[in-house]
Design a protein around this nucleic acid. Sequence first.
DNA 1: CCGAGTCTATACTTGCTGGTAGAAATCCTA
DNA 2: TAGGATTTCTACCAGCAAGTATAGACTCGG
Lengths: 215, 215
Amino acid sequence: MPGPISPWRVTGTRERRRELKRDAVILAAARAFRARGYHHTSLDDIAALLHVTKPTLYYYVASKEEMLFECFRAGLDRIATACSKARRGTASGREQLIEVVRSYVEAITSDFGWCMVRAEDQDLGPELGARIRQLKSEIDQEIRRLVRAGIADGSIGDCDPKMVAFALAGALNWIPHWYRDNASLPASAIADRFVEVFVHGLAPRREGALPGKSS
Amino acid sequence: MPGPISPWRVTGTRERRRELKRDAVILAAARAFRARGYHHTSLDDIAALLHVTKPTLYYYVASKEEMLFECFRAGLDRIATACSKARRGTASGREQLIEVVRSYVEAITSDFGWCMVRAEDQDLGPELGARIRQLKSEIDQEIRRLVRAGIADGSIGDCDPKMVAFALAGALNWIPHWYRDNASLPASAIADRFVEVFVHGLAPRREGALPGKSS
DNA sequence: CCGAGTCTATACTTGCTGGTAGAAATCCTA
DNA sequence: TAGGATTTCTACCAGCAAGTATAGACTCGG
């Protein structure tokens, strides 16, 4: 739906143009993968999206694998950035975690969301696959860290940080399975609902919540 | 890890033996898909697992697609069954939901869990793909129904049933991404942790909470 | 022990798609 | 406008894996 990506016919220095085109290739790949799935997308399909032929793609990218990797990275980087930003803040563990969740939802509903989640690192060679697993693991560790921080500062109740991280990441990573950018809530609204559930749980909230521990 | 599947060389009536072998083919396929991914698993691989050759598989199954479909179904059926069982009970919406979650975790950590979740219905033709989507949708609706029931009977607080269902299903469906039957918690323990998070949330619990819990 | 039905293997076809060789077009600089 | 670098195209290859034709082997009732 977002317009065609055409840095072909565009101005700027050589290097700059090349860079833009390469990005366009990655983005087109991401959209195609999302629409048809990695294995059902041929390079000709991607080339067609750009009104170009297959060998042209290879001028910007070494292999189909590399395209997938770059899509992966594009998404994961956004989340990693959000994590380290949260980390620099001074808010409570819970607040930081919530911030990360918001960024996570933004990233995962982007064009690259699908690739981050549905593409198997099996589809990447051992080389790139390992790098992706590394990135994923870092994010996982970061989430656990935030949960532990929250427990430490009292903003999060006692729980198993590992399982909480899995549950949270699972809920978030699943979004691309049902999210349709036409027909779904905007990312921020989704984030709100998720935060609500994860912070307060399903149990009916008892009245008399406010500060103070009168139960 | 669970031993080789060999109903080859086994007794029983003709029909019975055929049925057993067909099941064995499906199970072998499920394990292979889980280990290597659908697209990276050749029929020769599956045949090798059974110490048999590829054409033999075709004697029990019409196509690779059908194998995937049957794996899918094997897993989803377990969950659907759990749903309708829960439905027959008289417990509160929340209790019923929790029961479903437990069954869900059991199913999703089984050999078929991977297929239920990681296989794209894109890999199935329009025919089978539609049937799978149907099954998935039924389960989704069932979860939403339980949430609404819980809200109605007061066992669940006010919330958006659709988003809650998505969050819950996401967390559960993600399990195959990290679950390793050697190295992870047993299914029941995972279910416990998940229930804990989803029922009570991350916010520190104020004293004097609701009546305790269970098994 | 025979032959109809059941089961399995050998050996092949076929289509698709990732990837490439090398020529042609285009662009920039001088 | 010449000529070298950059960019894109046409045409092709190779390999893999799904699926099949067909013949051989096993089982079991009669």
